[in-house]
Design a protein around this nucleic acid. Sequence first.
RNA 1: CGGGGCGUAGCGCAGUUUGGUAGCGCACCACAAUGGGGUUGUGGGGGUCGGAGGUUCAAAUCCUCUCGCCCCGACCA
Length: 571
Amino acid sequence: MRVSQFPISTLREVPADAEVISHQLMMRAGLIRKVAAGLYTWMPYGVRVLRKVEAIVREEMNRAGAVEIFMPSVQPGELWQESGRWVQYGPELLRFKDRHEREFCYGPTHEEIITDLARRELSSYRQLPINFYQIQTKFRDEVRPRFGVMRSREFIMKDAYSFHLTQASLQQTYDAMYEAYVRIFTRLGLDFRPVAADNGSIGGSGSHEFHVLAASGEDDIAFSDRSDYAANIEMAEALAPVGERAAPTEAMHLVDTPDTKTIQALVDNFGLPVEKTIKTLIVAASDQVDADFVALLVRGDHELNEIKAEKQPEVAAPLCFATEAEIRAAIGAGPGSLGPVNLPLPVIVDRAVAVMSDFGAGANREAKHYFGINWERDLPLPRVADLRNVKPGDPSPDGQGSLSIVRGIEVGHVFQLGRKYSEAMNANVLDENGKAQAMLMGCYGIGVTRVVAAAIEQNHDDSGILWPPAMAPFQVVIAPLNLKKSSAVQQQAEALYQQLLARGVEVLLDDRDLRPGVMFADQELLGIPHRVVVSERGLQAGELEYKARSGGDAVKVVVDEIESFLREKLA
RNA sequence: CGGGGCGUAGCGCAGUUUGGUAGCGCACCACAAUGGGGUUGUGGGGGUCGGAGGUUCAAAUCCUCUCGCCCCGACCA
């Protein structure tokens, strides 16, 4: 393409509302323009990048045996009523009515549509397994869209749905999708990790997220330094500490602790090691227990894991923290003075808490704490469970090495759905005995638009974007200097352009006749991997100049050798 | 959803406290010079000051309502 016909629309200044680097660079490089909160127009260069990602996703999906279809983005509410999600989904689901007052929604995902398709099209186990996919625009009315296309409301997603008679078959396709995802993100040139994720009620290895590692990620990923164990922090098990609880050495005593409402204050004011303190969190109880609230105890330096907490039978789901007023009404003391001694509520303690001795905690009386508390001597040990988030340095749950925690951007998710939708919507096939069976389903998503942002988060420098070659909008840019005044430059630039085009190279000819500084700055901001400068000065020596976006010095290449030189670089 | 902030030219911002009829930089248009890292000069075009209502001789500025956008929080008792 020629820039004169394929306009570059760069911005010199950063738009005020762009916070993360990928959003800033996508705006500055003219890849996207904002239309409204969480809604973007993709500009010419941005679209080229998107198509690159889509092409790789398509190739690998096809290679893995998936079949492409294309479903509507607008979906009838009726199907969502049937699956039960019309009620469940909440305000993230954008709903509206057509002129006949029928209810519709803009699809945030397509389980209902695909399950409806499957029950119409699939009637025999002989048609299974099958894996349908599409690349579609979705809409989720996010509470807080942010970070540009990283968390936008409208986005492009590749979603696949597989159908099976048996768990073994589902597992096989699941594994194939897992492998396909590894290939896709590897080909895209991203630094990523598949991580075990929360998979709700389905057990086993039923769910993995694929995360691109980047500091701006919204998820915490725990991974082992000695094995390939990796898990979303929501999922990572905090093992019980090794060794027995130490024997008590002090008597339990009541201490006046005015103005001591936080763990930090307890540590600062009384010199108590933080590992000897306890946080007492009060949450709503489920109807399985005869109380309104349940107390959850974690060590002072640990964090409660809400997913783990929610899975406790005594705890109401979704997790709901008691208000200060509720705490005072139930216990007679406020937050900051709570503890397990004389607590009139069911209690669950974290594994780490269970092995503590001589510890301090609130006395359930204003401005008083007990120090020197010991389980089984001063009070019985309540039920023990894994309640906390793992921290860096914790032993890996697979027994190998210790955990590090990094931030990740979720770009893919593979998930075994089981029969949730097929049962709700009667998607059955006949098995070899002629008996109707609800199909097992898997679903597999990739956030195509988010992949673009994640790639930039991971690949940029002070001048702009550094595309992995597989995603770059163009491979080579020709930068002619003083184009309008030098017919030699003009002819050589044009000749090289035609030559590369004929070779099928994705080449951009910057025919804007700008000053070199401006031109170079734009090209670098856009992140085109290879640059060839055509100048009067160089041509007099019979040379062109090559420079890689990724770094290194510019090198002179004699005109006749440029094509083979580039071929080597592009290989 | 709770808290905070911001809406003035395409972008980034000043002007609002103390009311007097809108400005700067970049971008854009024209001409000229310059021509290897965002060059320079001259001359231009562009704004219902988010919207509605009110106060006033007079409102970007004060008041009320409204819309939009952004940030933080929504475990740490």
